[in-house]
């Protein structure tokens, strides 16, 4: 391994799986609770009107939930960066390409 990039990866990946600190079941439950609370808040926006802040608020909550599931339940926090890279590549590519796509259709201005 001579590129520095691969070297660091090797370093972190060669530790055996079992050595990683897996979150405890309790931790998982806490995370699920957090997700449940955010979901409740999301649903609440349907009943309680919060005006123009609605869409930004919903988006933030969505991204937070997404992030939590990916980081904890999908173990990206603890796993190799390579996995994160592929997932992030897919997400970033999808978001940017389809953002342009919708822009060309004048989606944001005409709704």
């Amino acid at each position: 391994m001579s590129t520095s990039e691969t070297r660091t990866e090797d370093h972190e990946d060669h530790e055996d799986h079992e050595d990683h600190e897996h979150p405890s079941d309790q931790k998982y439950m806490q995370i699920a609770l957090l997700l449940a609370v955010i979901t409740a808040a999301e649903v609440a926006t349907y009943f309680v009107h919060i005006g123009p802040a609605l869409i930004p608020t919903l988006m933030v909550m969505m991204v937070v939930k997404f992030f939590i599931v990916a980081a904890w339940f999908m173990h990206l926090r603890f796993d190799s960066k390579m996995f994160t890279r592929f997932f992030v590549a897919g997400i970033v590519l999808a978001v940017s390409v389809y953002f342009i796509f919708l822009t060309v259709f004048e989606f944001w201005t005409k709704g």
């Binding site: 691969t6 990866e9 090797d10 990946d13 060669h14 190799s80 390579m82 996995f83 592929f86 997932f87 590549a89 897919g90 997400i91 590519l93 999808a94 978001v95 390409v97 389809y98 796509f101 919708l102 259709f105 989606f107």
Partner: peptide
């Protein structure tokens, strides 16, 4: 890389799936 073939393949696949669902969601929004 020290990573298992299977797990790496699954992550590559999930990266690919992002573009699949992205297209479906954008079509819906349109």
């Amino acid at each position: 890389t020290g990573l298992s073939h299977n797990k790496l393949a699954m992550w590559v696949f999930l990266g690919s799936e992002c573009l699949l669902f992205g297209a479906l969601i954008s079509t819906y929004l349109l």
